[in-house]
């Protein structure tokens, strides 16, 4: 069978679908001081999952606010800098109006994913962290 680390090189999706792959990618991103990008990506997925479940509206709102505060609010943050102003305004508007929507972070997640695909993921595959592991 194909070793997992070769699968990780196939696509970002294959990498993010494997616990060890995520761990190694995170180690690399930490070195580059941009691990928040990966955390944000997973936070968006987790939020969508929670949103799809019944009840617990208070928790959903609290979580949406927490994601907004940690990753979007500070314009100098590594995640915030890579999300389009219109996307940020949309999220801010949702939070301010307490209008919590399961898809409210989808566009931001797509933008962050594009950054990873074009930038950090190819760099990771050429990095010492990955090459030493293989």
């Amino acid at each position: 069978p194909t070793p997992p680390y070769l699968k990780w090189a196939e696509s970002l999706h294959s990498l993010l679908d494997d616990q060890d792959g995520i761990h190694l990618f995170r180690t690399f991103l930490k070195q580059e001081e941009c691990a928040d990008v990966l955390d944000f990506w997973f936070a968006c997925s987790g939020f969508r999952k929670l949103e799809a479940s019944e009840g617990n509206e208070e928790k959903k709102l609290k979580l949406a606010k927490a994601i907004y505060k940690k990753y979007i609010l500070d314009n100098n943050g590594i995640v915030s800098r890579q999300i389009k102003p219109a996307t940020k305004s949309f999220i801010k508007d949702c939070v301010m109006r307490l209008h919590i929507d399961p898809a409210m972070f989808d566009q931001a997640q797509t933008e962050i994913q594009a950054v990873m695909e074009e930038n950090t993921y190819p760099l990771f595959l050429k990095s010492d962290v990955y090459l030493e592991y293989t």
Binding site: D17, Q19, D39, F42, C44, L50, L63, K65, I67, K70
Partner: peptide
């Protein structure tokens, strides 16, 4: 603030794939 962080952490973990 701690509970907000815990909530975020829990959310991030929930989205990660389980060990195969």
């Amino acid at each position: 603030i701690d509970s907000e962080d815990d909530l975020l952490q829990e959310c991030i973990s929930s989205a990660m794939p389980k060990k195969k």
